[in-house]
Design a binder for these strands. Structure first.
Lengths: 257, 257
DNA sequence: TATATTATATCATATATATGAATTTCTACT
DNA sequence: AGTAGAAATTCATATATATGATATAATATA
């Protein structure tokens, strides 16, 4: 079933503009997986025929999804569905820069452990699963320039990744989100992070080679899909003596929609 | 001298698109102060005549500046230059939410102190002034629901705010950025923040009523103008037991330009 | 005077169309 | 086989125009 076989209903008398209706229809195709990450979407002329509108209206709809980050337009080539990748990961999700610099460098990732355990009450609440159901708990160390600064604890529901094993996780050739996307058909579209200052407990101090009770930046990131289904709870413990968490607002402010 | 009297040169043969040239000309008007915060800019028809292009091209240029946050379009009313205000401040610059919630509430600000001192080497470097030149150092306490969580230290160059006094600062009716904007003609357009975990020193522990060496989130924010001239160095010390620093990426990612 | 109606100004949506730029694919030539 | 050039595909820019939606201002009416 190709997208070009689908029937779309654009209500010309609706109070919601046609371009927005088209944007929503295309968005639905994305999360219903009728358009998959990396895939080429139909060209503008085809979309014009499909939706029976003018090309300007199609361009406005596609432009909105491009601005939101779901589509990537390439002149002379076509429009593609965004996919997680080493190149795209970078700016979107990694917020650390070495002291004194503003450059965000790509982190080195080192696997620590992979285990199955029962979800805590809090984890279950966040992941919207029953307390006590199985989750994978994965630890990684992240570093820059051969020095480790970050311990990552990932919690994901086993039910959503039934075939995941330590081997598959360790042997992935790309980013973790790319693994979710390509092997499990789960596409993380938005993240929100909550930051706190804490101090190093025994585990963290050992892994990061810092003193017990050293100041540690604790980041809790929630990764969600198109319809805000929470997939991943990732807690980072960061030793910030040599690196900063960087957050830049480029313009005065910006409502997405 | 009104903007409508100015002469604009749009090169129709340039490789940079006309809409971008117009966007840049309008942006220049903004930072040259020919269009001031809150001001109504010429309507689309006038801009069409001014730049001698079609209305679609004008709309694309204005749309870009709107997306960047510099202009605010209001249907039926006109297009205005963004201004700092209590209502706009909110989402753009205050990143804290009470534990368990995602709502970012408006903080209560309490003045602590205002003094003139010599810039440290680091402050001078950030503010691009000579070490030892005069700066104002201003302390504030910020709270949510009558409880104080944040101490803010503001450093600004005296040379850029020659007439600023403690009285003027304390008696402002609006936000601090609004004061810069309206009384000193200095408009902060972009901020970048660097976060670290530290621990409470004597001053901070006293002001926030926490134990010495408690974990403290330290945020260094640099506020800049249109051309990235650094105006303000603001360091926040945050007691994060009850509040989180929240950072949300709404879509996969987003290049502004 | 207070309120409802009408007119006006301004941005928003939508169509139709033409030309340009970037990329890939095809084709002909050496 | 390899390369250069032409053709085709696709998105980007730009113009012209018509109609709609929204907010304010002006006017008429009770």
């Amino acid at each position: 079933m190709s997208i070009t076989d689908l029937q779309f209903n654009i209500d010309r008398d609706s109070k919601t503009p046609m371009w927005l209706q088209i944007r929503n229809e295309l968005f639905n195709c994305l999360y219903r997986d009728e358009l998959r990450p990396g895939q080429l979407i139909p060209n503008e002329k085809t979309l014009v025929d499909l939706f029976n509108v003018s090309i300007g209206t199609v361009r406005k709809a596609v432009g909105a999804l491009e601005k939101e980050g779901f589509l990537i337009r390439k002149q002379g080539l076509g429009t593609f569905v965004f996919q997680h990748d080493k190149s795209t990961f970078h700016f979107a999700y990694f917020h650390f820069a070495l002291n004194g610099t503003d450059e965000i460098s790509y982190p080195e990732v080192e696997f620590i452990s992979f285990e199955t355990k029962k979800a805590t009450k809090y984890e279950a609440k966040i992941l919207n699963i029953s307390p006590g159901s199985n989750v994978y708990q994965i630890f990684n160390k992240l570093g820059i320039n051969k020095k480790n600064y970050i311990v990552d604890k990932i919690i994901i529901s086993q039910a959503k990744f039934p075939t995941l094993t330590e081997e598959i996780f360790k042997n992935r050739a790309n980013t973790i989100y790319n693994l979710y996307q390509n092997k499990f058909n789960i596409f993380i579209t938005n993240c929100s992070e909550k930051l706190k200052a804490t101090s190093a407990d025994k585990t963290v101090s050992a892994l990061l080679n810092v003193k017990l009770d050293s100041p540690i930046l604790r980041i809790e990131r929630i990764g969600q899909t198109y319809h805000n289904e929470t997939i991943e709870l990732r807690t980072s413990f960061v030793h910030t003596d040599d690196i900063d968490y960087v957050n830049t607002q480029n313009s005065t402010f910006g409502d997405t929609f």
